[in-house]
């Protein structure tokens, strides 16, 4: 009798051994999108069936398209009042928009105050001058130039955030200064990522990672309660990582001068423009931020990139749940109080 039980046990064990290889791998589904926010979006979801993953991708794509169109300042879309419509009507008339756009703009105003103006969505006219030069350089690299300083100064005279009037009750936005325009580049992607992640969670997806152009949201865990592991690029050699972070229900955003730039007379000009000097700031190579909200992380990484270290450090210390890492021009890494607790090997 005893030996019979023993055999049963061994048979069971053998069966388990057989099954092991198949369940050791948690199924993950990944998708990449190229058509939104002028950047790359990638999405990986775990612990769901193929059908559920497909449904998540449909939701994601719909939402990406919706936010992309709402936040677009270069193109118009049928049946949608977006930021371009608001800009085009500056000094002319209020525009009635989706309540989601009202919420974004209100958030941007609060971030402006929180960062002492280092994040300013009303500096669209300044950013447009840089944008034009960048676009020109793309088609004719040899005649690349930077914006004329007098023009930059002139544009900077029309970047007052209080020119943006938001009427929440009527869902209307009116820019009172006709030379002022909105550009949510510093916040838009992070804000959209946050909202989309919340929607996916509400649909029942728990374990996923969403990356909209460097705005990474690590929801839940990768598999069997293993955290997501995300590498921070070495700005001096982007084929290498500086360090890896272990993230569970956290967001990570990096702002870097190496990501998007153009060259004039051998000198690089990147895309993060300081609202006060009106020039690309070259104090750091990159700034990375970890916290719970991707919109905040996006805004903060931009603000910190332009702030002197002491000012930035204090801002991070005074903001709950926010940690940051600065990589200076010489490649030195500086950390906020608890940033290193996320670093893993």
């Amino acid at each position: 009798m005893k030996t019979k039980n023993f055999f049963r046990a061994v048979s069971l064990l053998s069966c388990i051994l057989f099954l092991l290889p198949s369940c050791a791998r948690t199924q993950r589904y990944s998708e990449t999108y190229l058509d939104y926010f002028d950047t790359v979006t990638s999405f990986t979801v775990c612990g769901v069936s193929k059908k559920e993953a497909d449904a998540a991708n449909y939701t994601l794509q719909d939402e990406l398209e919706r936010y992309h169109q709402l936040f677009d300042i270069y193109n118009e879309y049928d049946g949608i009042a977006n930021l371009k419509d608001i800009n085009d009507n500056a000094g002319i008339a209020p525009v009635c928009v989706d309540s989601e756009l009202i919420e974004l703009l209100e958030y941007c105003v609060s971030v402006h105050d929180m960062t002492s103006g280092y994040v300013n969505i009303a500096m669209g006219s300044v950013l447009m001058l840089w944008h034009t030069c960048r676009e020109e350089a793309r088609s004719a690299p040899d005649s690349a130039r930077i914006p004329d300083e007098a023009l930059l100064r002139e544009a900077a005279a029309h970047t007052n955030i209080s020119s943006i009037n938001i009427d929440k009750n009527k869902n209307e936005v009116y820019i009172s200064d006709k030379h002022t325009s909105i550009d949510v580049g510093a916040v838009g992607k992070g804000y959209a990522a946050q909202r989309i992640a919340e929607k996916l969670k509400a649909c029942g997806y728990k374990d996923f990672i969403l990356n909209i152009g460097g705005n990474v949201i690590a929801s839940g865990s990768k598999s069997n309660d293993n955290p997501w592991k995300v590498g921070i690029e070495n700005p001096s050699d982007t084929t290498k990582t500086l360090c890896s972070l272990s993230l569970t229900d956290k967001v990570l955003v990096s702002s870097g001068s190496y990501q998007r730039y153009y060259t004039v007379d051998g000198k690089r000009y990147h895309h993060i423009i300081d609202p006060f000097t009106l020039m690309p700031q070259n104090t750091y190579l990159s700034v990375s931020v970890v916290c719970d909200d991707s919109a905040l992380a996006d805004a903060m990484s931009t603000a910190l990139f332009n702030m002197p270290y002491s000012v930035g450090y204090e801002l991070v210390s005074n903001t709950d749940g926010l940690e940051a890492m600065w990589v200076t021009q010489s490649g030195e890494c500086l950390y906020s109080e608890n940033f290193q607790s996320y670093i893993t090997d």
Partner: peptide
């Protein structure tokens, strides 16, 4: 545009495009 060359190494959550 050489975006792909400047993108650095591909990561699981960050493809090179």
């Amino acid at each position: 545009d050489k975006v792909c060359v400047n993108a650095g190494a591909a990561q699981e959550i960050k493809p090179v495009v």
